[in-house]
């Protein structure tokens, strides 16, 4: 009887440690955010999002680090995975999306990505980890 009780205590102790370790590791190594699955905080044109950052008086809404959907026409295509929309927004696609030969200058595009913030050296809004929604 005593031996049985001791085994039960030891076993439940081990179980507790395992559960705790599992939870701790899960917390420490949680996955990065999944842009594709996250819902869009704001959907707007490239000119509108630029306006929001360039004139902060217009709106106090802070879009930095939020998931946004932006549309406009492509004005520049850079190496590997970067495009510019209406010369106002720089979009870095995630590594799976190639841009050379896939997109054309002047075509209308809608993308979803994480808004990184406003670059006041170039006066453009930067978006990274973008995925393509629509390309016409």
């Amino acid at each position: 009887m005593k031996a049985k009780k001791r085994i039960a205590i030891v076993l439940s102790g081990i179980l507790l440690v395992v559960v705790f370790a599992f939870l701790a590791l899960n917390y420490m190594y949680k996955p990065h955010r999944n842009i594709a699955e996250e819902s869009v905080a704001s959907s707007l044109s490239a000119i509108e999002i630029h306006e929001k950052f360039a004139n902060p008086n217009i709106s106090l809404e802070n879009l930095a680090d939020k998931i946004v959907e932006v549309n406009g026409s492509i004005t520049e295509i850079e190496q590997t995975h970067t495009i510019f929309i209406d010369n106002k927004v720089q979009v870095d696609f995630d590594t799976l999306q190639q841009v050379k030969g896939v997109f054309d200058n002047g075509s209308n595009i809608t993308i979803k990505g994480r808004c990184v913030g406003f670059d006041d050296l170039l006066e453009i809004v930067k978006i990274d980890q973008a995925i393509l929604i629509k390309n016409q």
């Binding site: 930095a64 680090d65 990184v116 913030g117 406003f118 670059d119 050296l121 930067k126 990274d128």
Partner: peptide, 23 residues
């Protein structure tokens, strides 16, 4: 980050760079 900005002026040798921390 691979989306910082750098500008160099070869006339004045001035260099400016900006990185968004969230990037």
């Amino acid at each position: 980050t691979e989306s910082a900005t750098a500008i160099f002026d070869s006339e004045t040798n001035q260099i400016a760079s900006l990185a968004l921390v969230k990037g």
